[in-house]
């Protein structure tokens, strides 16, 4: 778990606006081993921007600035756009929030799965088909043949997200970035999808970056957590020690959640402190003490 797959140093993502430069991510550093790393924060905290900037998917006029974003020691920032296309999907893939908007509505599911796969691997159509059917089976889709020939609108949300997982994992990437992969799903389906993703990531020894707004979910599912606020990492902790988190923002988030087991007449309201914005970012690098 301690060998570093990905190392990000001093990442800043900025957007020039009419009223000055807006920094969505401000000088954060973290690394990812063969582990499940959760990035948690509220909307606007910069968590999605962090995920996207790893794949250099920030659109102009947005700017990525970092000392390094390196995958196995190779700095992705120095890659050409053409080389970057070989990284995306092949070595690092990404699952977005809503399968309804990520799948092409007028293309059969099988064709979508094999399209990316055949771009990265020189194989025949028949081989790609066999591999896709196996992958659909691996994400527990009961009737892979039928799904292979179906269109996205024929699928439920949970099925759609499983198809996305299959599509992203089939080229065998080392790192999977999942940006709110289950927020659009019902709780019971959510659990099922997470279990599938967890099993596949573990079996393949991949690194997972799990971006979510849901503290409880992340603490139950990940190994390590980065908590982001205002574009900075304000706290990092082992997922099983989230209850011992000390930063007032993390504590405030934990306390503002209603809990079935602990009824109270009023929920605690998070009192934001401007000082949180100005504190320097905490390092999110993997430490020996992070390994349970």
């Amino acid at each position: 778990m301690t060998d570093t797959l990905l190392r990000v140093d001093n990442l800043t993502v900025s957007f020039p606006t009419r009223t000055g430069v807006f920094e969505a991510v401000r000088d954060i550093s973290f690394s990812l081993g063969r582990e499940r790393l959760g990035i948690v924060g509220e909307s606007g905290s910069g968590k999605s921007m962090t995920g996207r900037s790893i794949l250099r998917l920030i659109q102009k006029p947005g700017l990525i600035d970092a000392k390094q974003i390196s995958l196995h020691g190779e700095n992705l920032l120095e890659f050409s756009e053409k080389d970057m296309r070989k990284v995306r999907g092949h070595r690092i893939s990404m699952i977005m929030q809503d399968p309804k908007f990520s799948l092409n509505p007028v293309m059969k599911i099988g064709d979508q799965i094999t399209e990316g796969y055949r771009l990265h691997k020189k194989i025949s159509k028949a081989e790609a088909r066999t591999a896709s059917l196996e992958m659909l089976d691996a994400v527990l889709i009961r009737d892979p043949e039928r799904v292979y020939n179906a269109y996205p609108h024929e699928m439920s949300g949970g099925m759609g997200q499983r198809i996305m997982i299959a599509m992203m994992l089939i080229p065998g990437p080392e790192i999977l970035i999942a940006d709110e992969p289950t927020s659009a799903l019902d709780v019971t389906v959510q659990k099922e999808v997470l279990e599938i993703m967890d099993r596949l990531v573990r079996e393949r020894g991949m690194g997972l970056i799990f971006i979510s707004h849901d503290l409880q979910l992340v603490s139950a599912f990940c190994d390590r957590i980065l908590i982001m606020y205002g574009g900075r990492i304000v706290e990092t902790c082992r997922a099983d020690r989230l209850q011992d988190a000390t930063h007032p923002y993390t504590r405030g988030l934990l306390n503002s959640m209603p809990q079935l087991a602990y009824p109270r007449p009023h929920l605690e309201v998070l009192a934001r402190d401007d000082a949180w914005r100005d504190q320097p970012s905490v390092s999110g690098h993997l430490e020996a003490s992070d390994v349970p």
């Binding site: 509220e42 707004h213 405030g252 988030l253 503002s256 209603p258 009023h266 929920l267 309201v269 998070l270």
Partner: peptide, 11 residues
């Protein structure tokens, strides 16, 4: 809504 805003609205 975010959880912290959810708390305000529920209150």
């Amino acid at each position: 809504l975010d959880v912290s805003v959810q708390a305000e609205i529920l209150n």
